[in-house]
Structure formats: structure tokens, C-alpha cells
């Protein structure tokens, strides 16, 4: 079977990528054309034509507004994410390793994990402050549990056989965690860190919308309340692109560091 399909696949090869790219580009053009057509209809108000959105995007960057907003949002996101990663991996390890932490902290973590953070915003705002600090704390809350739960799961899911290997080869307790448990839990930890990136972006933008408006959130709110639909859509597209790029980056880092699995 395999030997008969292989040559056939080989003859497709030269046209394959071309066909794929043709279709991809065509579908993107079709999508943009449909958007333009729909946006130009007199009765579409909440959808501006793509050309106007592109212009608004250009203006946004040319005036420096978008650049500043993007930088501010990314700053909030990155600081919050790094704090969440440190806490999440640290506490996750602790829970994975210590029975005490499992009994005392884990139930709290699960309760926190299940709570929609946005519900807490009005209350949290009082304690966290409404400016940068509050936004960063929200980003941390938004993604820390995901990282934490994945880390502790990863530790608990380390195959007992690998722990036996470590013990049999006289690994000290420290070496056992450093050289066996932690690397074995890495796929879970990276998964948590990757999902955390997406959640950090959502957290940052949500905090910017719902706490004191700032950065991308302020751009979106301002455009919304003045019916500046092209800028609103440009802001939304920008937020989506930010998410797309950062998630891609996270996947890339994950794939690189876990390359041994599929090597």
C-alpha cells in the first residue's frame, strides 16, 4: 500500500503547495472583498468596509496612538504573565510535591480556578487599585491558575517508573526533582504556560476595559462611544493580531523545547 501511494503523492508535490497557496490567497481576497462589499452597504453600520478599517489602522499607527496602546498593553501583559509564571510554576511544583500543600492550598486553587475573574473586578478594583498595578494583578489572576494547575498535574502525572529509574541510579532527592520530575512534567508545564499567554492577553485587555481604561482598552472604548467604527474594528483586529502572534510565538517556543518528543 505504502509503496503504491508514495509515487502518486510525489507527482502531486510540485502543484500541491502552489495549489494550497493559491487557494489560501484566493480565500483571503474573497473574505476581504466580501467584507468590503458588506461594509459598503448603506445599512451596515457596525461593520465598516475593510478599506476604511485599514485606513484607520494606518492612521492609528501614524499618529502613534496604536503603537503606544500596543506597548502599554504588552507591558501590562508581560509583567503580569512573568509574575504569574513564577508563582504558577512555583506553587504548582509545591502542590505536586508536598502533601501538605496538596491538602491546604490545592482546594483554594481549584476554587480560584473556577471563579470567573471578571465577576470580581468591581470588588478587586478597591484593593488592587485601578491603574497599572490593578491591571497587572488582574492579568496575574487571569492566567496564574492555568499555569499552576497544569504544573501540579504535570508533577503528579510523572510516570512512577521514571522515578524508580532515578532512585535506582542513586539520584539524591534534589537530583530526582531536578533531573527527573521537572523535565518529565515539562510538557504539562509548557502547555500551562502556553495557555497562560492567551489568557494573559485577554486579562490585560479586559482589565483595560473594565478597570481604569487604558491602552488598547481605551482605544476600543473611545472608538465605541464616538461611533468611530473603523477605529473600533482596527483596534479589535489589532488585539486579535497581538493574540495570534503571541500564541504562535508561545507554540514555537513550546515545540522547540519539546522537540525530543517527536524528533
Amino acid at each position: 500500500m505504502a509503496s503504491t501511494t508514495k509515487p502518486a503523492a510525489a507527482t502531486f508535490d510540485p502543484t500541491g503547495p502552489m495549489l494550497m497557496w493559491t487557494l489560501r490567497i484566493t480565500s483571503v481576497i474573497a473574505l476581504l472583498a466580501a467584507w468590503e462589499w458588506y461594509g459598503r452597504k448603506p445599512e451596515s453600520f457596525t461593520i465598516a468596509p475593510v478599506s476604511e478599517v485599514a485606513t484607520a489602522m494606518w492612521d492609528g499607527f501614524a499618529s502613534g496612538d496604536f503603537g503606544r496602546a500596543l506597548a502599554g498593553t504588552m507591558l501590562t501583559m508581560v509583567v503580569g504573565y512573568v509574575i504569574a509564571a513564577v508563582i504558577g510554576v512555583g506553587v504548582g511544583l509545591w502542590i505536586g510535591v508536598s502533601r501538605y500543600a496538596q491538602n491546604t492550598i490545592e482546594p483554594l486553587v481549584h476554587a480560584g480556578y473556577a471563579t470567573p475573574v471578571s465577576l470580581l473586578i468591581p470588588i478587586l478594583g478597591i484593593y488592587t487599585g485601578l491603574e497599572l498595578r490593578g491591571r497587572i494583578i488582574l492579568v496575574v489572576l487571569w492566567c496564574v491558575f492555568e499555569i499552576l494547575v497544569n504544573t501540579s498535574t504535570g508533577i503528579k502525572e510523572v510516570p512512577p517508573a521514571l522515578i524508580d529509574v532515578g532512585k535506582s541510579f542513586n539520584a539524591s532527592k534534589f537530583d530526582l526533582y531536578r533531573k527527573v520530575v521537572l523535565p518529565a512534567a515539562r510538557p504539562y508545564i509548557f502547555l500551562g504556560l502556553k495557555i497562560g499567554v492567551g489568557r494573559a492577553i485577554r486579562g490585560a485587555v479586559t482589565a483595560e476595559l473594565l478597570l481604569s481604561a487604558a491602552n488598547l482598552g481605551r482605544v476600543l472604548l473611545g472608538a465605541q462611544s464616538t461611533f468611530d467604527i473603523p477605529t473600533l474594528l482596527a483596534g479589535i483586529v489589532l488585539t486579535m493580531l497581538l493574540g495570534l502572534v503571541l500564541m504562535r510565538l508561545a507554540s514555537l517556543v513550546e515545540r522547540r523545547s519539546l522537540a525530543y518528543r517527536t524528533a
Binding site: 517508573a161 521514571l162 524508580d164 529509574v165 535506582s168 541510579f169 533531573k179 527527573v180 523535565p183 518529565a184 515539562r186 525530543y260 518528543r261
Partner: peptide
Amino acid sequence: GVVFQHAHLLPW
């Protein structure tokens, strides 16, 4: 020194 049934190498 131990040799395990499924080799149990450290995959990373």
C-alpha cells in the same frame, strides 16, 4: 545497576 523492562530512558 538496573536494566528495566521498557528501558525507561529519560525521553528528554
